[in-house]
Design a protein around this nucleic acid. Sequence first.
DNA 1: CCTCAAACGAGACGACGCGTCTCGTTTGAG
DNA 2: CTCAAACGAGACGCGTCGTCTCGTTTGAGG
Lengths: 180, 180
Amino acid sequence: MARPSTVVRVHRAVLDLVREVGVDGLTMEGLAAAAGTGKQTLYRSWSSPLHVLFDALLASSTADDGRVEVPDSGDLARDLRTLVDGIVDELTEPAGDALMRDVLTRLQVHPELSAELQQRLLGPQTAAIAERFRRAGVVDPEQVTELLLGPLFHRWLLRTGPFTDGWVRSHVELVLRAAG
Amino acid sequence: MARPSTVVRVHRAVLDLVREVGVDGLTMEGLAAAAGTGKQTLYRSWSSPLHVLFDALLASSTADDGRVEVPDSGDLARDLRTLVDGIVDELTEPAGDALMRDVLTRLQVHPELSAELQQRLLGPQTAAIAERFRRAGVVDPEQVTELLLGPLFHRWLLRTGPFTDGWVRSHVELVLRAAG
DNA sequence: CCTCAAACGAGACGACGCGTCTCGTTTGAG
DNA sequence: CTCAAACGAGACGCGTCGTCTCGTTTGAGG
């Protein structure tokens, strides 16, 4: 439908623009101006500025290798700490931290977008972690994965507390004890 | 600042109106019309329709007894299942389910509102649960509470799966094993 | 009961983004 | 070279924004 060059220009424009005006400051008119495109061209492919932003973020995150790297050294405790440290680093990266939380929370209102995120990013990542648990002989890998990630997202989304080293260590310890 | 009668009328209006038009359909103009009030009166006390809605929900939830009832029969496992069943019932209640998720996710963009929610509702509730764990001799009650609630909210907010009886039972089991 | 300032209802106002539309131009596959 | 699809530009009517006046209501202190 849309020419590849147009999509690239729009993606670049929305990622630049959102850093200036924030997620709520995005408008189709502003986006069209920034991308040097007509409004009709935007509406041809996207139905709101949030859809544009989501599409751009998804494209960039699958482009620079959205693969999941779950460490597997044989030592489950060590691997989990490494994994959680990596996730925490991503979640607290000053550059994208606020933006990612903004987008993720706003996505929840659009079932089709959160389903796509689930399918293309979160699903594969939790599956990879569950697979690591399974390889370690954990009985209920999916549920233990949820036990590992749930409090992480809870803390991050609801801002109920900081991610200190001590918190990460004892959280992993609790999960390991639950895993048996 | 605002007359009590005005606040009551606005609260009633926003709770009625949001069921007709949804959270995104709320506007200050529509709210003023529905409440039979001037726009200036609204702007005197609130800065956006979301602020009005949040205030109304908070008022109604603290009015009809926002107290936390954490069962304490002596049997921790049984009490936890009862507690989680109660929370799940609230989270999946057809009437308020979608509305609460909408409001809660949109709140995250407003740090002052989510801080108020944390302080006036979530904080006391998690504290009460942690206290129950402490009474049962759990070493790290706060973190175990997070282990219990994190996956619940994760599942609810991100819609990653349904709350079946089986899920609740094995989740509580895992948390209990982690608690030692 | 009277007074008077604070709070109020009503709505006018210019600004702005919405989503739709037309129109003339560019582009690339056949 | 051709020609339809995609495009850029922007006009259009509409609704909401947040601010602003203006005259009316309200209730506590004299």
